[in-house]
Amino acid sequence: MSPILLAEQILNGLQSGVMLFLMAAGLTLIFGVMGLINLAHGSLYMVGAFAAAAVAGATGSFLLALIAALAAAAAAGAMVELLVIRRLYARDHLDQVLATFALILIFSEGTRWLFGSFPLYLDIPPWLAGTVMLPGGIEYAAYRLALIGAGLAVAAGLWWMNARTRLGIQIRAGENDREMIAALGVDISKLYTLVFAIGAALAGLAGALVGPIQSVQIGMGEPVLILAFVVIVIGGIGSVRGALVGGLLVGLTDTLGRLLLPELFKLVTDASGAATIGSAFASMAIYILMAGVLIWKPTGLFGARA
């Protein structure tokens, strides 16, 4: 195996890691502040991708498409919070899971009703098409490089919001003690709606960014949602920093596992068998990682509470 292949795979792992971070950050923020398990987070990812595809199709502008995705997902998130989620904070997690699972079905069928059953077309903008030559002779897709950049920029932005703004202080206070900050005069229900909309917008952004290289179709959010849950369990529930580290760990483990495990099995069996067994083990790699982290740190890498 050449060093170039390995370097390219590490970049691929980073890219899938930062996209997982965008999904996981919203999920963990919502769980951290409101204690709510939101299974419909994957639907907000789908809403972002469909909004982006519709606007890109109508206007031809990718930047407008991204803005539309952010706006549509944030609006959908705020609406869901006001209409449904608000009634669930006091209920136990099973009720929340049931209600947000119902939302998945409503979003999926609603999207089919609006856009039909056929996958939509969303392409990489021309100014990010093609590949760039990185130092060391690595030819890498420009769009994927841009995704890594965008993900890291969002991470920096979230850190700034959390550490330096009034909203960040309220969010952190809300994570610690919601009754107390309500007593101190913070409008907690407005804060909840806002946090939910921010989380939804992050999911919508992830959907819109990933749309051009994947398939914009109904049900696209659910596989990502499962990975995002793995990420927040590894990173520690409620921790945005944990979501970033967890996302990168999962992205790298998954990508490198898919490359290295079949190679490893080639040492002991024939190529065709190694491909089958290696691929089966590669699909387990992130769950083995999760189990390992939980044995070592039961609350996740940066989790404060169990």
Binding site: M1, S2, S16, I213, M220, L259, A271, S279, A282
Partner: peptide, 24 residues
Amino acid sequence: DLAGEVYTQLGQTDFAAEIAQIRA
């Protein structure tokens, strides 16, 4: 002869790793 034989996961949506293997 085959240059490579790879099984992906069912439902996988990102193929960057496989594409890098094809290239190499």
